[in-house]
């Protein structure tokens, strides 16, 4: 059981939880995630560790309100308890001297990339942060991120697809006037991971994507999270979640993410009915 210290809404569909988890707070590294179980009937869902405070023994989670589990999380109040948090899991992101690094974050990825930005910066890298969102109203943690980056850029989309052009212009533009840009790290919704990879593929710019396949245990025991990268099968929870975006079999990845679509809808309807009947 982990006590909730804070639960705040950052932007319309994104929430920020601060949770007591002292052991995780002292071992978390950028790029790692935890498995969260909201309540005793809950699913185990992966969420990135968006920050941590060793001295207070807390970790920060930022999540998008999508389905049953995240809706349950959004409903918790300060002082409530989560059923469980396990981690930190996954391989930490590489933090070495890259020179210039472009971090592209969308939805929860703004927060998820924050610790990486901070540590890369501390290592002396120059960080360009590109926040991708539906509109300005969906950008959060801007000041926090600005403090640990050299440049903060935004790309907005009026609808789902119109941002491609902006993203492409920005990324290709950067490459032409920032010759030391050596790699891109992307975190956020699957569509963003894919789009950015396709853009950078054209110019051969190394791109690491934080894949978010379905997971069950998160410890390498079930294979739910398998992804194909450069023709080889990996378990994203132990071999990733960061992979070479130019090697991912995106078609397989998108189809596997949809495994439980109809059940997810059913579960949500069930939860909403239950909440209604409680009111």
């Amino acid at each position: 059981m982990n006590r909730i210290i804070l639960n705040e809404r950052l932007v319309p569909n994104i929430f920020h939880l601060v949770v007591e988890a002292p052991e995780i707070a002292s071992s978390a590294r950028p790029g790692q995630f935890v498995m969260v179980i909201p309540d005793e009937k809950g699913e185990r869902i992966p969420l990135n560790v968006a920050d941590w405070d060793k001295s207070k023994g807390t970790i920060d989670l930022v999540f998008m309100n999508l389905g049953v589990s995240t809706r349950k999380l959004a409903g918790f109040k300060t002082g409530d308890f989560l059923e469980g948090v396990a981690g930190p899991l996954g391989r930490p992101a590489e933090v070495v001297d890259f020179g210039q690094v472009l971090l592209v974050g969308g939805c929860y990825g703004l927060a998820g990339l924050y610790p990486l930005a901070r540590e890369l910066k501390e290592r002396g890298n120059q960080i360009l942060f590109l926040a991708e969102a539906r509109s300005r109203a969906y950008i959060y943690w801007e000041n926090r991120i600005r403090k640990v980056t050299d440049e903060f850029l935004t790309a907005f989309r009026a609808d789902c697809f119109s941002s491609d052009k902006d993203l492409e212009e920005i990324i290709l533009g950067l490459k032409s006037w920032k010759p030391q840009l050596s790699r891109v790290v992307v975190m956020g919704c699957s569509y963003l991971l894919f789009t950015v990879s396709e853009i950078t593929r054209k110019i051969g710019l190394k791109t690491r994507v934080n894949l978010n396949p379905l997971m069950v245990d998160g410890t390498g025991m079930c294979g739910a999270c398998r992804v194909t990268v450069h023709g080889k099968t990996y378990f994203a929870c132990v071999d990733g979640p960061e992979f070479d975006g130019h090697g991912v079999d995106w078609q397989e990845y998108f189809s596997r993410r949809k495994a439980f679509l109809s059940q997810e809808e059913l579960a949500l309807v069930h939860l909403v009915k239950k909440l209604d009947s409680q009111e």
Binding site: E43, V216, F260, E264, A267
Partner: peptide, 8 residues
């Protein structure tokens, strides 16, 4: 016991 439990 889905959907009483969340995992399908």
């Amino acid at each position: 016991r889905f959907p009483d439990f969340d995992t399908p």
